[in-house]
Write a protein that binds this DNA or RNA. Structure first.
Length: 813
RNA sequence: GCGGGAGUGCCGGAGUGGUCAAACGGGCAGGACUUAAGAUCCUGUGGCUUAGUGCCUACGCAGGUUCGAAUCCUGUCUCCCGCACCA
């Protein structure tokens, strides 16, 4: 039978759509299952095989779960706000709205041809005011709750993006979109979301998530909790708290270092030192313009500020230095330096000839401050530490902290690396922040009833922030007092959009509220989330924050958005590089579909390796999948349907059902495919309809169109995709058949071996077996089988006497 | 520097304590079919060896634990990824 793949694909795609085969309704009594892929940014260049790979992973699971009786929610939407569209607008003069709408249209068309079983009715787009209106709604709610605040602070600025960035969007000191562009620090007044309010919970709940360990670790490290002690040092008569994890070394402090980027640095600089400090600041600024590599290898450098700090326990005066290696916004931006027991402090002290004082003595040898070549950071007993002498340093950490607390000189504390999320963006193509500035009332939130604050369409690009230059947008009236006011012209980080879109799918058309609570509580959390690992500390973290915040405001009843997370691998082109348009190594689904049908592409993508691994596209490799598909089609064309099948087939079928079911559940699609192939390869020419149907069902999630077609060909009127997944009948699984299969294999290889040894190319083969084994071997092709006790057997060399149980004797002639 | 992962045949990849020379696919070789090519089908594809089901060798490298290791442990090399002066 020849199959017109294209026609078949269209036929079934249309039927699925017409009959709303994949529409999800929450009133079902069935158990829900929410499968979701991270919604894509609709780039103008459309989809390539890499996208197909990604979406197929989810589609297979969605179809599988549906067939297993789950009420499946499997939606798709578009992360359609963002810089690329706006930059394209500046370059090409095309309005982002227009290019975005076109790109989305293209995406939908392409995704539909992939045969993905989305419920298209639930589509959402973040640039739709029906969606971003609710971003504004959440912003106001957060504001009410004190989870949003405006603050002037040093922020990351990317000169290429022309906007500030969140901490999470700075990678290795550079912009996440521009690897070659180092972010600059600007002091600006910006909107922040208080993600740190949930730092503890965000950290603690990670352990309960069924996420890849890698992502969990990354997120844990990003949140970065450390226990320590805050110690008050007195500088110029003012208290200055300093965070340390090593209060046991307090007696070893010989200097202090304040971050060169510290906003209060100049307060500590004396007249005499001012010039030198300024020179130093200029110098490190120059260095920071250089490449990241050089910064990495940077020496610890610093300059004396002229001020002194008083050690609260020793009352000693120690110099305060400004240093390039102290992080300004961690702790208080100043550290106590203990050169004897901290490598960085050690290097610094050596360089500037600062005193080194040993206060921890290791058990096995004696430290000498003058001879040390590096800091001793291990454990030991305290010395030079007054009443804490001889105490083990672990104990001293606790005791000294208690002592400080008692004397109100310090306190036990916890520090996080996590910063609040900066969401202001000085860009046009995003959600307007719903706030106005009134000369009389100050910052006034836009009332809920006035939402959405619409993004104006008629704007000028290329002359700064198009919102700021749009008088019509900017000038407004204060909602409180009615006098003249100006609108906030910053828009929200698009990660705000993606922090809750998965909830909107549950009720995407709601005009009165972001979503109906009942619906969200029915569908959420997402049971299986699929997407790239690059979002470990971005989208995945923000979404977790959002969920917790919404829970505490009573909007939802769950605290985690994504129960299971799966990171798909990257598809590489035949040249070995990640498939991308800029690389020029893309393979387009359309082309492959034209030649082989999309099912073949799906099958191939899933067979290469486990879907969490990086894989390489291969034009040759797909031939193998194509061959198999043709084989299956031909088989259905010729197969003769009979009532009963051999127990051997039943055993194989049920074993395959059992294993494939498990494999798909664990997203081990590659293994499932191997077993399905094996099953089809071992089906005989005459077989029962039941076996055919069950086999076809197992195959369906991978190749949905062809299996529908064959299902129909078997005389079925229903959709196979809505049929019940077969259940393995354990009673029918008989390992003996496998053993027999092995035995036959072994016999064949033995015959081959003898052929090789004797040099006989196409001999006649006679096999002698024990009478009870006759059944096992009699159907093997190309050999003549005798029972050893057969009087009429042909055995000129009397080989039959060599036959043993499970070891047939062989004679070649 | 710290953290995570990986190193198996000609190649992509299975296998995570015994039944494994290693699933499945690709490639290659031989055969069948064909005037021929393609498609298709069959067979082979570490080495040795006796007309056989045996032996040896292999899972980056070197050791160790174990009756037994690709699989566990230690060291070491290489590669990939993430974080990076967080006190």
């Amino acid at each position: 039978m020849k199959m017109n793949f294209k026609a078949i694909e269209k036929k079934w795609q249309k039927r699925w759509e017409d009959k709303k085969a994949f529409s999800a309704k929450e009133d079902s009594k069935k158990k829900k299952f929410y499968v979701l892929e991270m919604y894509p940014y609709p780039s103008g260049s459309g989809l390539h095989m890499g996208h197909a790979f990604n979406y197929t992973i989810g589609d297979i699971l969605a179809r599988f779960k549906r067939m297993n009786g789950f009420n499946v929610l499997y939606p798709m939407g578009y992360d359609s706000f963002g810089l690329p569209a706006e930059n394209a607008a500046i370059k090409a003069g095309k309005h982002p709205k227009k290019s975005t709408d076109e790109a989305i249209k293209k995406y939908i068309k392409q995704q539909k041809t992939l045969g993905l079983s989305y419920d298209w009715n639930r589509i959402l787009m973040s640039h739709d005011s029906e969606y971003y209106k609710w971003n504004q709604f959440w912003f106001l709610k957060f504001l009410e709750k004190g989870l949003v605040y405006r603050k002037k602070s040093p922020v990351n600025w990317c000169s290429k993006c022309n906007t500030v960035l969140a901490n999470e969007q700075v990678l290795g000191g550079c912009c996440w979109r521009h690897e070659d562009t180092e972010v600059k620090i600007k002091h600006l007044e910006q909107w922040f979301i208080k993600t740190t309010a949930y730092a503890n919970e965000l950290l603690d709940c990670i352990d309960n998530l069924q996420w890849p360990d890698k992502i969990k670790t990354m997120q844990k490290n990003w949140i970065g909790k450390s226990h320590g002690t805050e110690i008050d040092f007195e500088v110029n008569g003012k208290k200055f708290p300093v965070f340390t994890t090593r209060p046991d070394t307090i007696y070893g402090v010989t200097f202090m270092v304040i971050s060169a980027q510290h906003p209060r640095l100049m307060e500590f600089v004396t007249k005499e030192q001012k010039k030198e400090v300024e020179r130093f600041l200029k110098k490190i600024k120059r260095v920071s313009q250089k490449s990241m590599k050089e910064v990495e290898e940077l020496d610890k450098e610093g300059v004396f500020t002229g001020s002194y700090a008083v050690n609260p326990v020793t009352k000693e005066k120690v110099p305060v230095w400004a240093g390039n290696f102290v992080v300004a916004d961690y702790g208080s931006g100043m550290v106590m330096a203990v050169p004897a027991h901290d490598q960085r402090d050690f290097e610094f002290a050596k360089k500037y000839n600062i005193n080194i004082k040993v206060v921890i003595q290791p058990e096995t040898y004696e430290l000498d401050a003058k001879k040390m070549s590096r800091a001793y950071t291990g454990e030991g007993n305290l010395i030079n530490s007054d009443k804490f002498n001889n105490m083990n340093n672990r104990e001293a950490i606790i005791k000294i902290t208690k002592f400080l607390e008692k004397n109100k000189l310090g306190r036990e504390t916890i520090q996080f690396k996590l910063r609040d999320w900066l969401i202001s963006r000085q860009r046009y193509w995003g959600t307007p922040i719903p706030v106005v500035y009134c000369n009389k009332c100050g910052i006034v939130p836009v009332p809920e009833k006035d939402l959405p604050v619409l993004l104006p369409m008629n704007v000028k690009f290329g002359e700064g922030n198009p919102l700021a230059t749009n008088e019509k947008f900017v000038n407004t009236k204060c909602p409180k007092c009615g006098s003249k006011a100006r609108r906030e012209t910053d828009t929200m980080d698009t990660f705000f959009d993606s922090s809750w879109y998965y909830m909107r799918y549950c009720d995407n058309k709601n005009k009165k509220e972001p979503f109906d609570k009942k619906k969200v509580n029915y569908w959420m959390p997402v049971d299986q989330y699929i997407g790239g690992a690059e979002h470990a500390c971005l989208h995945l973290l923000y979404s977790r924050f959002f969920t917790k915040a919404l829970r505490d405001m009573g909007f939802v009843k769950f605290g985690e958005p994504f129960i299971k997370l799966f990171n798909q691998g990257m598809l590489h082109g035949e040249d070995g590089a990640v498939m991308s348009k800029s690389r020029g190594n893309v393979v387009l689904p359309e082309e492959i579909s034209e030649r082989y049908g999309i099912d073949t592409a799906r099958l191939f993508l899933m067979s290469i390796a486990s879907p969490d691994k990086d894989i390489e596209w291969s034009d040759r490799g797909i031939e193998g999948s194509s061959r198999f598909i043709r084989k299956v089609i031909n088989y259905f064309d010729k197969v003769e349907i009979i009532k009963n099948v051999e127990a051997r087939i039943e055993s194989k079928l049920n074993k395959t059902i059992k294993e494939v079911t498990k494999d798909i559940e664990c997203l081990r699609y590659n293994l499932a495919i191997i077993k399905i192939r094996d099953l089809f390869n071992s089906l005989p020419e005459k077989v029962s309809k039941d076996v055919l149907e069950k086999s076809l069902k197992l195959f369906h999630p991978f190749c949905p169109h062809i299996t529908e077609e064959l299902w129909e060909k078997l005389g079925n009127k229903s959709f196979i995709t809505l049929e019940k997944w077969p259940i393995a009948d354990e009673k029918k699984i008989d390992e003996r058949f496998d053993m027999q299969e092995q035995a036959v294999k072994k016999l064949k290889s033995d015959i081959e071996q003898i052929k090789k040894l004797t040099g006989k190319k196409a001999p006649k083969v006679y096999v002698y077996v024990l009478p009870r084994e006759l059944e096992i071997y009699k159907s093997v092709d190309g050999i003549k089988v005798f029972a050893v006790n057969d009087k009429n057997k042909y055995d000129p060399e009397n080989k039959s006497k060599k036959a043993k149980p499970n070891k047939p004797a062989i004679y070649l002639e």
